[in-house]
Design a protein around this nucleic acid. Structure first.
Lengths: 228, 228
DNA sequence: GGGGTTGGATACTCATGGTATCCAATGGTA
DNA sequence: TACCATTGGATACCATGAGTATCCAACCCC
C-alpha cells in the first residue's frame, strides 16, 4: 500500500509518519521507484506499537527507537536484552551507576533477590525508594512484605508466559514488560477506588460493610461515586 | 532560613527555586522585609516532594501543581480527592470521557468491580489495554486472573494503611498512590530479571551463581501461553 | 502529457522546563 | 554610618523534544 493508505489505516498524520521515518522508528517502505514505496501490514502494526510506546508507556522518541531496535535485532541473550530494554524505560536514572544503592540493596536482601548494582532497575528502584522517602511515605517492612510476594507472583506469570522461540521471546518479553505496566498501574488505581469505596463507607447506594466481597465474578455493587 | 540556605539544603539551584515559586509549586516564604523572606523545614520537605513528583513520578510542572494543590487544600471528600489526583497522573488521557470503554468494562466485570465511565482511571485502563492489544500482547483472561487478585491485595493494604485523620489521610493517599507506583514497577522489573535468571539459566552482567532455591510459589518453567 | 501523489530535504512552530539578567531595596558588617 | 553582597520580583532568554509545514522534483496513472 502507499503511504496515504497508512495514514488512513492508522489515523496518524502524514507529516508524523514522515517524522517517524526520519527518526528511524518506522522502517522505510520498499521503494518501487524514486517517488513510490510500498508499505505492508507490518508497517501498520509497527505504527501501532510506536504509538503504544510513546503515548501510553510514555517513552520519548529516542527511547522508543532503542526499544524497537532491540526487537528488530535481538541480541542472542534474552536476559541481557531485557536488561537493555528496561534501561530505556522510565524513570530515567542518572548514570551514576557505579555508586551504591543502599535502599534498593536492603529491599532486595529482604526479598531474597540478588543485589547487582549493574542492573539499571536497581538504580530505578533506589530512586523510587528515595522519592517515596522524601515524600514522607517510605517503604516500610510491612508494606514490602505485601508488595514483594504479590509482585513476584505477577513476574513469575510474566516470565512463564514468554514464548520459547528466541525471536518471538525477545519481542514478547520486551513489549510485555513495557506495555503491561500501565495496565497494572491502572488496575491498582481502580482497585484503590473500589476498595476505598467499600471500606470507607461510601456514599451512594452501596452501604456495604468493610469486608471485601469475593474479588472475581461477584459483581453486585454498582453506582460508585465519580470524581469531579 | 534564607533562600540561599534552601539551595544548600536541597541542592536545587536558586534559579530553579525561583521558578518553582513563580509557578506556584513552592509557597513563598514569610516576608520579613521587601527583600527578605524566611523559609522553614516545610519548604525543604516541599521541595523534596516536588522533585519526587516531577523526576520520579514523571509529572509535568502543571500536573505537579494540581496534585500539590489537592494536598494543600484537601476537599472534604477523600474519595473525590483521590479521583482528582489520579486524573493528574500519567498517562494523560484524552478527555473523551463520555465515550464507552469496552475493554476496561470487560476487565472490571471479570474482577467484580463496578464499571463507572466517570472514573479517569477507567479511561487510563482502556488506553493501556488498547495499547497492549495493538502491541500484540492483549490482556487475556489467564493474565487478568493473575494480575487482578494480586493487585487487589496490594490495593487493600494501601487503603488499610491510610491514616484515619482527615487531612493526613488525603496527603497520604494522594502521595502514596503516586509515589509507590515507581516502586512497584521497579520491583516487577527486578523480579522479572530474578525469575528469568533462575528459570532460564542466568548469564547477566554478573556471573554469580543463583544458589537460592526456586522462589515462592514457583512452578517450574514451562512456557508458551501466548495467545495474542 | 498533465495533474495529483510521492519521497526527501529543510525550515518552522509550540510547549516545557528551566537559566540568566536586571533592578532596586535591604541589612549585616565594618 | 557606609557599603556591598544578598534578596525578591520581573522579564528575557535558551535548549530540547515532538511534531508541522513547505518545497521541490520525480513519478504514476488516467
Amino acid at each position: 500500500m502507499r503511504i496515504s493508505e497508512l495514514v488512513e489505516r492508522t489515523g496518524v498524520p502524514l507529516a508524523t509518519l514522515k517524522f517517524y521515518l526520519r527518526e528511524g522508528l518506522l522502517p522505510a517502505g520498499e521503494a518501487t521507484s524514486a517517488t513510490r514505496a510500498e508499505y505492508g501490514e507490518a508497517h501498520v502494526r509497527r505504527i501501532a506499537v510506536i504509538r503504544a510506546l510513546t503515548e501510553t508507556v510514555g517513552l520519548s522518541v529516542q527511547k522508543a527507537r532503542e526499544v524497537l531496535a532491540l526487537i528488530d535485532r535481538p541480541e542472542d541473550d534474552l536476559f541481557a536484552t531485557l536488561g537493555r530494554a528496561i534501561a530505556a524505560l522510565p524513570p530515567d536514572v542518572t548514570p551514576k551507576s557505579t555508586q551504591d544503592h543502599p535502599r534498593a540493596r536492603a529491599v532486595l536482601e529482604k526479598l531474597g533477590q540478588v543485589y547487582d548494582p549493574g542492573f539499571v532497575a536497581v538504580a530505578q528502584l533506589e530512586q523510587a525508594l528515595a522519592a517515596a522517602e522524601s515524600a514522607g511515605i517510605p517503604l516500610d517492612d510491612a508494606r514490602l512484605a505485601v508488595y514483594g510476594p504479590h509482585i513476584r507472583a505477577i513476574a513469575e506469570f510474566d516470565v512463564d508466559s514468554i514464548p520459547r522461540e528466541a525471536t518471538a521471546a525477545v519481542e514478547y518479553a520486551v513489549l510485555g514488560t513495557a506495555v503491561h505496566e500501565p495496565v497494572l498501574i491502572a488496575l491498582r488505581r481502580l482497585a484503590h477506588q473500589d476498595v476505598a469505596a467499600r471500606r470507607l463507607g461510601k456514599k451512594g447506594p452501596d452501604p456495604r460493610a468493610s469486608k471485601r466481597p469475593p474479588a472475581r465474578g461477584a459483581s453486585s455493587g454498582r453506582s460508585r461515586p465519580k470524581e469531579s
